[in-house]
């Protein structure tokens, strides 16, 4: 849920990175953090286990430029991808303005991708959102790996509604900002339509 502050002239929006365990959600945020200049970002918070698996969420506040005299701020969150953290995942989705689904391109993770996507839909529904109606993009991550599935197969399985989608390698950063820009753009367009 966006927060429009007429007093401080700011718009705040919440974007959530969703996807199966180890698909690279945290890596996306780390790359964005590392490549953003200091005045445009706040501290990145990672609530993680000792083995660096996300336990509750990662949080990265970004401040883009101004739009019609309002400073635009995006709060990026990741969810914990491991199946048994579902209760936490659900909590993070509360008040979301836009969703990035990060898929793991490796063939052996296809089932996990599908399961996570179904889980996303279910959890959104519980908050009263419809995945087909909110700003939403898909990222096929880990394209650099030799065991990654062909793109058209991924598209068919994970993006039947053909929302904007991107190939990525979050470690090298390829496709990371394209994904972010696309979802941010959809969120702002939604704001414009005043829904």
């Amino acid at each position: 849920m966006s927060f429009i502050n007429y007093s401080s002239r700011e718009i705040n929006c919440k974007i959530v990175y969703y996807g199966p365990g180890l698909c690279g959600k945290t890596t996306n945020l780390q790359y964005i953090y590392n490549k953003t200049n200091p005045q445009a970002k706040g501290k990145m918070i990672s609530l993680a286990t000792e083995t660096e698996r996300t336990l509750f969420f990662d949080f990265l506040p970004l401040s883009l430029g101004e739009i019609r005299g309002f400073r635009t701020r995006f709060h990026l969150y990741t969810v914990p991808g491991q199946v048994f953290y579902d209760a936490s995942r659900k909590l993070i989705l509360k008040g979301v303005d836009g969703v990035v689904f990060v898929a793991d391109s490796q063939i052996e993770r296809m089932e996990a991708n599908i399961e996570s996507l179904e889980n996303l839909r279910t959890n959104l529904t519980e908050h009263g959102y419809d995945l087909d109606k909110i700003p939403y993009v898909v990222q096929y991550n880990k394209r650099d790996l030799p065991n990654s599935a062909p793109l058209d197969e991924l598209k068919k399985l994970l993006n039947p509604t053909t929302v904007p989608d991107f190939e990525a390698c979050a470690v090298s950063g390829e496709g990371v900002f394209d994904t972010l820009k696309a979802v941010a753009k959809l969120v702002l367009q939604e704001l414009k339509s005043g829904r």
Partner: peptide, 15 residues
């Protein structure tokens, strides 16, 4: 949708 987002106006902010 899950309702409109939050809005803050000058007047209420001061209060």
């Amino acid at each position: 949708m899950a309702g409109p987002g939050m809005v803050m106006y000058e007047e209420e902010f001061h209060k």
